[in-house]
């Protein structure tokens, strides 16, 4: 039996126009899944870092990693599933409270999840939550009865625990 597993892959990309679409194009052309993708700059202006969450059986994941490595714009990557790592996602949710009781309930749930209310207007709360996938999803579930108006998620970000790093080796 082929078991499907979720993998979070961290990628250092050349900070070049088109690099992102090479990665995105690879996934669509070869029919790989993308659950989420996040890309942003790093402390090194020549590099951007992408965190990509995909799923597939072992053979598919192996191909995905090989194909990514083959892209000239991919400088280095790491399959976080092979390491102890931390994953976080940031979500902002807009919730319209129906009445005063709902306002209190929303605030209570936010507290339980250590979410922060970052804006409020006309009984509409904008809440920021950070956490792993499970927490983010549990929060949405808990808020389900309260009129979720809008959800925006960053997609997962990941980093390895301990002193190991994903960085480009200095030139010898």
């Amino acid at each position: 039996m082929k078991t499907i597993q979720r993998h979070t892959i961290s990628i250092l990309l050349e900070n070049e126009s088109g690099a992102l679409s090479r990665v995105a194009g690879l996934f669509s052309a070869r029919g790989y899944n993308i659950e989420s993708v996040n890309v942003s700059m790093t402390n090194d202006p020549s590099l951007s870092r992408m965190t990509l969450v995909t799923c597939g059986d072992e053979q598919t994941i192996e191909q995905i990693i090989k194909q990514l490595n083959k892209l000239v714009d991919v400088v280095k990557l790491m399959d976080l599933a092979e390491h102890k790592h931390i994953e976080r996602e940031l979500m902002m949710v807009k919730i319209a409270a129906k009445n005063i009781e709902a306002c209190a309930a929303i605030k209570r749930i936010a507290d339980i999840f250590r979410a922060r209310i970052i804006d409020i207007a006309n009984k509409t709360y904008t809440i920021e939550v950070t956490g792993g996938q499970a927490k983010i999803e549990a929060f949405l579930e808990a808020m389900n009865d309260h009129g979720i108006q809008e959800v925006v998620r960053s997609g997962a970000l990941g980093i390895v625990r301990g002193s190991a790093t994903l960085k480009v080796d200095e030139k010898a």
């Binding site: 191909q63 090989k66 083959k70």
Partner: peptide
């Protein structure tokens, strides 16, 4: 020479 050719179709 191309790792992605290996175990792509046949392990």
């Amino acid at each position: 020479i191309d790792p992605s050719s290996i175990s792509k179709n046949v392990s």
